[in-house]
Design a protein around this nucleic acid. Structure first.
Length: 451
DNA sequence: CTGACGATAAACATTC
DNA sequence: AGAATGTTTATCGTCA
């Protein structure tokens, strides 16, 4: 069996990842998967609840997102929205989207973001203010492939959920909801999502016995051990992106790219936003928040208790995206940082029952466990045991020796530092600019340049 | 050129 | 039985 289904999924040949626009040619019809999910979750549903969702779902957020999505029908050719477009739009919108949810409930309709941008108007204004000419391309961006790896998308989806865990279905939903591109893309992406979940050590599967009614499959959460890594990756990914935006990339985004002023404007905004977003996550990952993490052994998630699951209600939490071009460099650089962060980190292998002989490949944040699992398989056809380019030595270290429970509590210096930055970012978001932040930015710039 | 990494495809197994 | 899930293997494209 599977035959037919698979066939349907696999029709597309390799398209340039990330660059290609939606392959609409592919008949979505065959994809049994997409439609269902899609319908289900339009409007934030995916994250908020619904059949397969957790009780947690308190989202609510009537999503401004919905609107944004809707208006994304356009579709001119100019595909390739530049990263900036994409980021600009999605980021802004997502930030706004917050949710009425809880958190202070009164999430100012006009997120701080807009203040920063000097446009209190809201998403609409924000984008329109950027440049009318870019509006069409922005719409396109909604249909373009997100410049983030699946790992990060998944991460964001999970992190955004109140319980910090989601079933694949909801992950699909979140992605569809935030990235309409996938609704028209060949269903292969779902396969990719699953593939990532399975392969990426950053994600862990948790049985959803409690609270969860029926439902196939389990919930997936971010492995606390790797969260810092993800955050780091995300963060790093963003910064360079900002840079790129500020400094006209050499090979960039072609002519259709938005007006330069947009970039510049985004510069001040982006970085801070991004940092802020990251900060949210950082904060979430802070000790205080971890208790809610279903993956955290120390804090078993009780899905039946909403309050227990609710970790961060801050609507603005994630939703930060970055540019793809930088993705690579970031992921790469992140790998180094990841490893460092990871260091001493427990190895998921313990937590994960299944032996995951992951190849180094698709999972960006694997810290090389390969070595630990013994490489019994030595790796398939792929020759090398994947010596992580970044810290070969540290890589082998990764495997923590013990149970994963431990460590998350102790915030490493780096994290601590990040938390500080995060705080700064938050202040910034609140409209309070600190000198430290300024310094931070310049420092980061330097850092990045060095890389 | 090579290695790392991410994406995608595909086959297959398991569970609901 | 069929669909959703989950796992694993393989290949390709991009980038440093």
């Amino acid at each position: 069996m599977g035959q037919t289904r698979l066939r349907a999924e696999g029709t597309s040949h390799h398209n340039l990842p990330g660059l290609m626009g939606p392959i609409v040619g592919m008949s979505p019809d065959k994809k049994a998967e997409t439609p269902g999910v899609q319908e289900d979750r339009v409007g934030l549903r995916g994250v908020c609840g619904g059949p397969g969702t957790l009780p947690e779902a308190e989202c609510g957020a009537a999503s401004p997102l919905a609107t944004s999505l809707d208006r994304g029908s356009g579709g001119s050719e100019d595909e390739e929205l530049t990263n900036l477009n994409w980021l600009h739009e999605n980021l802004l919108q997502n930030f706004t989207l917050g949710g009425p949810g809880e958190a202070g409930g009164a999430q100012p309709s006009a997120s701080p973001l807009f203040d920063i941008e000097g446009d209190p108007g809201g998403p609409q204004n924000a984008s329109s203010s950027s440049s009318s000419s870019s509006s069409s391309s922005q719409r396109d961006s909604l249909k373009s492939k997100p410049p983030l790896s699946f790992s990060l998308l998944i991460y964001m989806a999970i992190e955004q959920s109140p319980s910090k865990s989601l079933p694949v279905k909801d992950i699909y939903g979140w992605i569809l909801q935030h990235f309409p591109y996938f609704s028209s893309a060949p269903t292969g992406w779902k396969n990719s999502v699953r593939h990532n979940l399975s392969l990426n050590k950053c994600f862990r599967k948790v049985e959803r016995s409690l609270g969860k009614v029926n439902g196939k499959g389990s919930l997936w959460c971010v492995d606390p051990e790797y969260r810092p890594n993800l955050i780091q990756a995300l963060k790093k990914q963003h910064l360079p992106a900002v840079h790129a935006f500020c400094t006209p990339p050499a090979s960039p985004p072609r002519a259709s790219s938005p007006p330069r002023h947009l970039f510049l404007q985004g510069c001040s905004l982006k970085e801070s936003d991004i940092d802020a977003a990251t900060a949210m996550m950082l904060l979430n990952s802070a000790p205080g928040h971890q208790h809610a993490n279903p993956c955290d052994p120390d804090s078993p998630l009780d899905l039946s208790r909403p309050d227990s699951v609710l970790v961060s209600s801050d609507p603005k939490q994630d939703h930060n995206y970055s540019s793809m071009a930088l993705q690579r460099c970031s992921s790469r650089s992140s790998s180094s940082s990841l490893s460092s962060l990871d260091e001493g980190g427990p190895s998921p292998s313990h937590a994960r029952p299944r032996a995951r002989p992951r190849r180094a490949g698709s999972e960006g944040f694997h810290s090389d466990e390969d070595s630990d699992l013994g490489d019994e398989r030595g790796g398939r056809t792929h020759p090398q045991p994947t010596p992580r380019r970044s810290s070969p030595s540290s890589s082998s270290v990764k495997r923590p020796a013990g149970k994963r429970a431990r460590r998350e509590v102790t915030v490493k210096p780096e994290l601590d530092e990040e938390l500080k930055e995060a705080a700064g970012s938050l202040l910034h978001l609140a409209g309070i600019r600190t000198s430290m932040e300024l310094n931070k930015h310049s420092a980061k710039s330097k850092k990045l340049n060095r890389k």
